[in-house]
């Protein structure tokens, strides 16, 4: 497997990266972890004219809580997220998801920002961020904007990013006390893309559900937010019936296609099962 020719730059600063993107537009492609991009280039399914390697830009990999947010640098490797004590204690849906991404060696390279920008409907981080109500900070040489992940993900492998922009940071609202979450993924083996995966985040307030976030992986043209299910849970008692109804609504919101992993009917049923199980697990954690 031998990729086509391309030009390569490896800037040292975000400014240089953005200037290069501004100059080359859609001829240029950002190279972060490369674990999705490089295989596509080897298969010659992708042939960018210029690769802008951001791996030499310092300061793009971090996980920290500041102010109202958990801030995650775009270049943070999945392995770092998998091992992060902060995520384990405060952001269980993220802590669950990180080790389920691809395999350990791929996680050593793959980054959270790269995964979001790739916008694979079977990608894991999009659903997790939807469940958490996260935002991304996006920069270009002339502008900076912060948008919810729900506005980032447009369609299969399509985001609202302009070719001159790059994601620099992910901002997750700090989880209040009495929060819990889970990421449940069905894969045929380690390294497989999800047959179905569900991200759930719950916050309780005096025994009722203050906020519920539900993201769905691999059951639509992009990572899906199960809004109807979230709305049904908001303000409700966390009962088995409420969870079952939310699971039903989430399954209804999914639009999977049939393939070797299973029929659409099966995948919908699994969304239902996994959302229900995920809510149970999240509730247990939220109750502490």
């Amino acid at each position: 497997m031998f990729p086509s020719r391309f030009d390569y730059v490896a800037p040292d600063t975000v400014e240089e990266v953005l200037a290069t993107l501004a100059q080359h537009g859609d001829e240029a492609k950002i190279l972060a972890g490369g674990q999705s991009l490089i295989p596509l280039m080897k298969l010659r399914f992708a042939s960018p004219g210029l690769l802008v390697d951001v791996n030499r830009v310092p300061g793009l990999g971090f996980v920290e809580e500041t102010g109202e947010h958990l801030r995650v640098g775009t270049l943070t490797r999945n392995t770092e997220l998998e091992r992060s004590a902060l995520l384990k204690s405060g952001y269980p849906v993220m802590a669950d998801a990180a080790p389920m991404i691809s395999d350990p060696l791929v996680r050593n390279r793959g980054t959270i920002g790269g995964s979001l920008a790739h916008a694979d409907p079977a990608g894991d981080w999009g659903s997790v961020m939807l469940a958490l109500g996260a935002e991304v900070v996006i920069k270009s040489s002339t502008d900076e904007r912060t948008i919810p992940v729900s506005e980032l993900l447009v369609n299969t492998f399509t985001t609202s990013l302009d070719p001159t922009e790059m994601i620099t940071e992910i901002r997750v609202p700090k989880t209040p006390a009495r929060s819990g979450g889970s990421y449940l993924k069905m894969e045929r083996r380690v390294g497989d893309f999800a047959t179905v995966a569900t991200a759930v985040h719950l916050t309780l307030d005096n025994g009722t559900i203050k906020r519920a976030g539900i993201g769905l992986t691999a059951v639509g043209s992009k990572n899906l937010q199960a809004s109807a299910a979230e709305d049904a849970l908001a303000g409700a008692e966390p009962t088995a019936e409420a969870f079952e109804e939310a699971a039903r609504l989430a399954a209804e919101a999914s639009s999977p296609s049939s393939d070797v992993r299973g029929s659409a009917e099966y995948k919908k049923a699994m969304v239902r099962t996994f959302v229900r199980r995920g809510l149970d697990k999240a509730l247990e954690l939220a109750r502490g």
């Binding site: 395999d103 045929r188 083996r189 380690v190 390294g191 497989d192 893309f193 070797v260």
Partner: peptide, 27 residues
């Protein structure tokens, strides 16, 4: 459990790389 080469109606091979033709890992 997982190894499969199959074809769609046009004769396109599904299972043409190790992302689709699954080999069991240590896990």
């Amino acid at each position: 459990a997982m190894e499969l080469i199959t074809f769609d109606d046009d004769g396109n091979c599904i299972g043409s790389n190790f992302m689709d033709y699954l080999l069991p890992t240590s896990w």
